[in-house]
Simulated scan of single mutants.
Amino acid sequence: MSVLSPWTAECVEPVVLDEMAAEGLVRYEPDPDYWLSAEGLPYGYDVQAPDLELGVDELELITQAAGGVMRCDIVLHILVSDLAGRPALARIAERVARRTGGWVFVEFRSPPSAYLVEYLTSAGRCVRVEDAFYLDAAAMNAWIAHPDFHVVK
């Protein structure tokens, strides 16, 4: 899961650390790059330049919608394929987006219905990129609360 933020990497990383801890994750002492849930699921994150994985056109869409340049891309990941652990990524992403003025990249299992798109856009701001969306924190919060909520890894 990815969050684009207008904040610099130096400013956003403490927020990511706070939110991982708020989710109940703890640093794995032998390797502090990894975090563990109470169930022992391993999580991690990377803070990188927004253009490392995204094209210029996609970044421009977000820049226009956000009204400012995105300075970093926070990539949150769970290091095992465990469906039960994925919602934590979404909650962390939503809180990081809320605190940093960011946008969460959301993929769907299948193209979202018109109803779902209306539901998300009525809650917050959304930018469509093919069958995926960038959601602001309000729209991401609505997606997390939706009965069809899921996280595609």
Rank of each mutant, 00 (worst) to 15 (best):
D131F: 05
D136A: 01
D136N: 02
N141M: 12
D73R: 05
A123S: 10
A49V: 10
E94Q: 12
E130A: 10
E10V: 10
P6L: 04
G40L: 08
A90Q: 08
T100G: 06
I74Y: 05
S110M: 09
P111Q: 04
L116Y: 05
Y119M: 05
I74V: 15
L54V: 13
V106Y: 08
A84S: 15
V12N: 01
F149E: 04
E53W: 14
A38M: 12
L83D: 14
H150S: 09
I92K: 04
I62L: 00
V75H: 08
E39K: 10
P147Y: 01
H77W: 08
L52S: 14
Y115K: 15
L61E: 07
R91Y: 15
G67E: 05
E39L: 10
L4M: 04
Y43Q: 04
S81Y: 14
A38Y: 08
E29C: 12
D57Y: 02
I74C: 09
L52C: 15
L4Q: 04
P111M: 02
T121R: 15
D57E: 06
I144H: 08
T63D: 11
D82Q: 09
F108Y: 07
D148G: 09
P32A: 13
C72K: 06
G24M: 04
V3A: 06
M1G: 09
R86T: 06
L52V: 15
W143Y: 09
L116S: 09
I62E: 01
A137V: 06
I92A: 05
D82P: 09
R99E: 08
D73C: 12
I78L: 09
A66P: 04
A65R: 00
S37C: 04
W103N: 03
C126W: 06
D73K: 03
L79S: 07
V56P: 12
P87L: 09
P87S: 06
L135D: 03
A145C: 11
V12E: 02
V75P: 05
P14I: 01
A84G: 14
G124Y: 07
D33W: 14
R125D: 08
L89I: 10
M1S: 12
V127W: 00
T63F: 12
L120Y: 12
C126M: 13
D131R: 04
I62C: 02
D73W: 11
G85S: 00
V56W: 15
P6H: 02
I92G: 05
E58A: 10
F105S: 04
L89A: 02
Q64E: 13
A90F: 11
A138I: 13
V12P: 01
G40H: 07
D148V: 07
S2H: 14
A66Q: 02
D82L: 05
L76W: 00
G85D: 03
L120A: 12
I62Y: 00
L76R: 01
G124E: 05
E13P: 01
M20H: 03
S5M: 07
L61M: 06
E60D: 14
L41C: 07
